[in-house]
Computed example of a mutant assay.
Amino acid sequence: MIVGLGSDLCNIDRIQASIDRFGDRFLNRVFTDVERLKAERRPHTIAGTLAKRFAAKEAYSKAVGTGFKRGVFMKDIGVVNLPSGAPTLHLTGGARARLDALTPAGHAIEVHLTMTDDHPWAQAFVVLELRKKDDL
């Protein structure tokens, strides 16, 4: 059963402008080390890579119904890749606590993430799927 759905559209040039203006202060506040390393390995698309991840964080905050309130912070939401290469979210702190609060006993919530970009836009969708632990 779907218990949360979030989407976000992010302007890549806006992310580049934030990097240019605020540099590491912006990058350290918003992105995890893993996300920053991923972007650095893509020197021609750093802003696009980060914009997709920014959109994923926004989409997650919408899917859990809080936005960036009630302890849900951007840095607690990290985009990582599964061994298959598919993107997913690694959640810590308030972002993890909010997901746990939505999860009834005997169930788990699986996070599905898809991201894309086509300059000047980056987009992400997050779907939260509730499943019985026996079905996992």
Rank of each mutant, 00 (worst) to 15 (best):
M1I: 12
I2S: 07
I2R: 02
V3Y: 02
V3C: 12
V3T: 04
G4P: 02
G4C: 13
G6T: 04
S7M: 11
S7E: 09
S7K: 05
L9K: 12
L9A: 12
L9I: 15
C10H: 03
N11C: 14
N11I: 10
N11D: 15
R14C: 13
R14T: 09
Q16Y: 03
S18V: 05
I19R: 08
D20H: 08
D20K: 10
G23F: 04
D24H: 11
D24C: 03
F26R: 02
F26G: 07
L27N: 01
R29P: 01
V30Y: 01
F31V: 04
F31W: 00
T32N: 00
L37Y: 09
L37H: 15
L37K: 14
K38Q: 14
K38T: 12
K38W: 14
K38S: 13
A39L: 09
A39V: 09
E40V: 10
R41E: 11
R42E: 13
P43R: 11
P43F: 09
H44N: 13
T45H: 15
A47R: 06
L50A: 13
A51V: 04
A51Y: 10
K52H: 05
K52F: 00
K52R: 14
F54W: 11
A56N: 07
Y60T: 00
S61F: 02
K62I: 12
V64G: 06
G65C: 07
T66E: 07
T66Q: 12
G67D: 05
G67F: 06
F68N: 01
F68M: 07
K69D: 08
K69L: 09
K69N: 07
K69S: 13
R70T: 06
R70L: 14
F73E: 14
F73R: 15
M74H: 08
M74V: 03
M74N: 08
D76H: 13
G78Y: 05
V79H: 04
P83Y: 07
P83R: 10
P87R: 12
L89T: 01
L89W: 09
L89Y: 05
T92K: 12
A95C: 06
R96M: 10
R98L: 10
R98K: 15
R98A: 15
R98D: 00
L99H: 01
L99G: 01
D100P: 00
T103G: 00
T103F: 00
T103S: 01
T103A: 03
T103P: 00
P104S: 08
P104K: 04
G106H: 03
G106D: 02
A108G: 03
I109M: 03
H112F: 13
M115R: 11
T116Y: 08
T116S: 15
T116M: 08
D117Q: 13
D117M: 10
D118K: 05
D118A: 11
D118P: 01
H119V: 10
H119G: 07
P120K: 10
W121L: 15
W121C: 11
A122K: 06
Q123V: 13
Q123D: 06
Q123A: 15
A124F: 04
F125L: 14
F125H: 14
V126A: 08
V127G: 03
V127T: 12
L128M: 04
L128C: 04
L130W: 08
L130A: 05
R131C: 04
K132C: 02
K133A: 11
D134M: 10
D135N: 06
